[in-house]
Structures are given as structure tokens and as C-alpha cells.
Amino acid sequence: MAHDMKKDIIFRLRTIKGHIDGIEKMVEEGKTCDEILLQIAAIKSSIEKVGYSILENHANECLINMEKQGVNVDEVNKVIRSILKFVK
């Protein structure tokens, strides 16, 4: 994983951790279920984005290795883009 990507992922994960701490505080303070669920939905979306970024990075690294071995990278990349569109 590239250094810049790693920094971005760590930043996003720390932000998510902060939001989780915020939800814990909301529960302790007796906030409404609607307020808490809204924050949980935001965290869920954020963690999915982190997962997609890691998946995309992994796929791209695999493609580079495949290209070195003579595999048709354009076709494989096309399939990966289709998968990412579907799961997003």
C-alpha cells in the first residue's frame, strides 16, 4: 500500500473511531434513538468507503503484478471497475 494511501486510511479510521466515541457519549447522555442511528449510519458509510479504498488498492496492486506477467490488464481492470460499481 502506498504511503499516501496508508496515511489517508489511518486518518479515516481515526475519524471513525472519534465518531464511535461520540456515539458512546450520546448513549450515556440519553440521546434519542433517531440521533444515535443517524450517527451509526454515517459510520457505516465511512467504514464501507475505507473498505472500498483498500479493495481498489489491492486490486490495482494485483493488476500491476499481472501486467508484469503478461496478463491483459485492461480486461481485468474493466471487470474490477464493474465489481466496484456493483458493490457501491
Rank of each mutant, 00 (worst) to 15 (best):
T32F: 14
K17L: 07
G22K: 13
Q69H: 09
S46K: 06
G22Q: 14
H58M: 10
F11D: 05
D4R: 05
E48H: 12
H3D: 13
N65G: 02
D8W: 08
D8K: 10
M5K: 01
E61P: 00
Y52W: 06
A2S: 12
K17C: 05
K85V: 03
D74A: 07
V27M: 11
D4C: 07
K85N: 13
E28W: 00
E28S: 03
K31V: 10
K68C: 10
I10A: 09
S45G: 15
V73L: 11
I20Q: 07
M5E: 11
E24R: 15
M66C: 05
E67T: 07
I54M: 12
S53V: 13
N72C: 03
M26Q: 12
A41L: 11
I40H: 01
M5D: 06
S45Y: 11
V71W: 01
D4L: 12
I83W: 06
S45H: 06
H19I: 08
C62W: 01
I80Y: 00
I43T: 02
D4P: 04
T32Y: 15
H19M: 14
T15E: 08
Y52G: 04
A2Y: 02
I10N: 08
I83N: 06
N65A: 05
V87R: 02
L84V: 08
H58W: 15
I43M: 12
L84Q: 12
M26P: 00
V76Q: 06
V87S: 01
L37E: 11
I47S: 03
D21H: 08
I9Q: 02
C62Q: 13
L13K: 05
E56L: 10
K49I: 01
L38E: 08
Q69N: 07
R12A: 08
I80G: 00
K17W: 06
V76A: 11
T15L: 13
E24A: 07
I10D: 09
A41F: 10
V73M: 09
I20N: 08
D74Y: 01
N60S: 04
I40N: 07
E28L: 05
K44C: 06
I9D: 00
V76C: 07
A42V: 05
H19A: 14
I83R: 10
A59P: 00
D4A: 14
E35H: 13
G70N: 02
I43W: 02
A41M: 13
V76K: 13
K44P: 01
A41H: 06
L13V: 10
L37K: 09
D8P: 02
Q39P: 11
T32E: 15
D4N: 12
I9Y: 04
M66K: 09
E29G: 03
Q69V: 11
K88Q: 12
I43Q: 05
Q69T: 07
K78T: 09
H58A: 12
E24K: 12
D8H: 07
N60C: 06
N77P: 04
L55V: 01
I43E: 04
K44T: 10
C33H: 11
I83Q: 11
K25H: 07
C62N: 08
A59E: 00
I54G: 02
D4Q: 12
H58N: 14
A42N: 11
I20F: 03
R81P: 06
M66P: 00
C33S: 14
H58V: 08
E48L: 08
D21L: 15
G51W: 01
V73H: 05
K44G: 04
A2H: 04
K44E: 14
K85I: 11
G70R: 02
V71S: 02
R81S: 14
M1Q: 09
I83K: 03
G18Q: 09
V79S: 03
